[in-house]
Amino acid sequence: MTRILCIGEAMVELSAQGDLWRAGIAGDTLNTAWYLRRLLGPSHHVGYLTRVGRGDFSRRAVDFMAAEGIDTSHVTTDPTREIGLYAITLTEGERSFTYWRDTSAARGLADGPDRLQSALVGCDIAYLSGITLAILPDAGRAALLDALRGRDVVFDPNLRPRLWPDAGRMRAAITEAAGLAALVLPSFDDEAAHFGDADPKATIARYRAAGAGQVVVKNGGGPVAYGGPEGSGVVDDLPRDRPVDSTAAGDSFNAAYLAARLEGGTCADAIRAGHALSRRVIAHPGALVRAAV
């Protein structure tokens, strides 16, 4: 059995439905865990590591994950903080977010190195994102990265500068985490904006120089470049659609890519699988699209 542990923040998601708002549970690494669980068979175990509160929304989040087949044994409870909240607004299919997460319980998910080590025992793949790192205090971020050293890590940089005190600290932490990872799944538009990469090949070279293994550069539905010890190339025959809602496009790509690799597919096969799922996801509103899988 392959054991995958996704690490990050589960949040209440508010999405507009006309004049009303629909509440769901989502978050970048949780989205990937949800799609992984739906894509993979019973020979694969998907768990989630986070921290929630004691209130009704926190209980709903844990119940939701458990009902979806995601192991919640490493979800801990904070006695004073609560689950975070965000709202999605759309303009021509492109999303923007408003967050209420400054006092989120998930900021304490890495408190206690013993708890981290216990959660990672028996874990074959640890999956996290730049948002996971961004929400943590300095000590928690350092503890999480230390716990991940020497493990099989999959990392999506998911650059969100508003969550960081400054761009330099963001770039340094992202680079450190990528250097620990066997697989890095960046998005080129973010990398160009915040690292100044001229093209996806530059993104691959930079993360490889930091110590990353295979690097697969998502490109907004366009050609996907990859490089590393498993080979390099570009998959450039991917159909491109206008999104209804681009929420979770990258999260679902990551899930389908990883699922395809776990099922024995090549890097190019996995890129096509990731793109195919992402296309289905962006054809519907919201982060978790049951009709897509």
Rank of each mutant, 00 (worst) to 15 (best):
62 V>I: 08
98 T>M: 05
101 R>T: 06
48 Y>R: 00
283 A>K: 06
186 P>V: 12
20 L>M: 09
144 L>H: 01
152 D>K: 14
69 G>E: 07
180 L>Y: 03
287 A>G: 02
118 S>Y: 09
15 S>K: 07
219 N>H: 08
213 G>S: 12
261 R>Y: 12
30 L>H: 02
285 P>H: 13
211 G>P: 01
96 S>H: 11
21 W>T: 12
234 V>P: 06
63 D>Y: 00
293 V>I: 13
14 L>E: 00
205 A>Q: 09
25 I>N: 03
173 A>N: 03
226 Y>M: 14
19 D>G: 03
284 H>G: 08
198 A>R: 08
70 I>E: 06
59 R>E: 08
12 V>Y: 02
182 A>D: 07
242 R>K: 13
73 S>D: 14
86 Y>F: 15
224 V>K: 00
276 A>P: 01
59 R>C: 08
162 R>S: 11
230 E>T: 13
278 S>N: 09
33 A>N: 06
190 D>L: 03
185 L>R: 07
278 S>G: 15
190 D>W: 02
248 A>W: 11
117 Q>H: 11
273 A>V: 10
262 L>A: 13
287 A>N: 02
163 L>A: 04
254 N>F: 05
223 P>R: 00
76 T>S: 15
230 E>Y: 01
138 D>Q: 09
142 A>I: 08
126 A>L: 13
288 L>W: 07
106 A>V: 12
167 A>T: 15
244 V>S: 09
24 G>I: 04
220 G>P: 09
154 V>N: 13
243 P>T: 15
196 G>D: 03
137 P>D: 12
240 R>E: 13
29 T>C: 00
219 N>A: 14
138 D>I: 15
188 F>K: 06
107 R>G: 14
97 F>V: 08
249 A>W: 08
270 A>K: 02
79 P>Q: 06
166 D>M: 03
137 P>A: 10
169 R>N: 04
237 D>R: 01
177 A>F: 01
291 A>Q: 15
